[in-house]
Amino acid sequence: MPGSFYRVACPDCESEQVVFGKAASTVSCAVCGHTLATPTGGTADIEGEIVEIVEDRPEAGAINQ
């Protein structure tokens, strides 16, 4: 399954949480409950600052063989 994982800083409490870039359900901050990711049917809308890419998993056609 292609997609990336991001470490996102919550805009309300500044705690950091890892979020899948193609989240299929709403992701809330574990500390304050603020919505960090909203599913769109593709790449999720991420609210907050992306601090780093934890794991980048490219599309199948982009992998060198």
Score class of each variant (00 low, 15 high):
28 S>K: 05
54 V>G: 10
26 T>K: 03
53 I>Q: 08
30 A>N: 08
2 P>V: 11
32 C>N: 04
42 G>T: 01
37 A>F: 00
40 T>L: 12
33 G>S: 11
32 C>M: 05
19 V>N: 10
60 A>Q: 08
36 L>S: 05
24 A>L: 15
47 E>T: 01
43 T>L: 15
16 E>G: 12
28 S>V: 09
18 V>L: 06
51 V>N: 00
21 G>I: 10
53 I>E: 09
49 E>Y: 00
21 G>V: 09
31 V>E: 10
12 D>Q: 11
62 A>V: 01
2 P>H: 12
9 A>Y: 01
6 Y>Q: 05
46 I>L: 10
62 A>W: 07
48 G>E: 00
60 A>W: 07
19 V>I: 15
64 N>P: 06
10 C>R: 01
50 I>E: 03
2 P>M: 13
5 F>S: 03
39 P>A: 15
9 A>V: 05
1 M>D: 11
29 C>T: 13
39 P>Q: 14
17 Q>V: 15
58 P>A: 02
47 E>Y: 01
59 E>D: 14
36 L>M: 08
14 E>D: 14
6 Y>I: 06
1 M>R: 12
37 A>E: 00
54 V>N: 09
32 C>D: 09
31 V>C: 08
35 T>S: 12
64 N>E: 11
21 G>K: 07
53 I>S: 09
43 T>E: 12
65 Q>T: 05
12 D>V: 11
6 Y>T: 05
45 D>L: 13
57 R>V: 15
31 V>T: 11
48 G>C: 03
20 F>C: 06
5 F>W: 05
11 P>E: 10
41 G>S: 15
31 V>Q: 10
16 E>Y: 14
65 Q>K: 08
58 P>Q: 05
11 P>I: 06
60 A>V: 07
8 V>C: 01
1 M>F: 12
36 L>T: 05
42 G>C: 02
61 G>H: 11
42 G>M: 02
53 I>M: 09
4 S>C: 06
5 F>T: 02
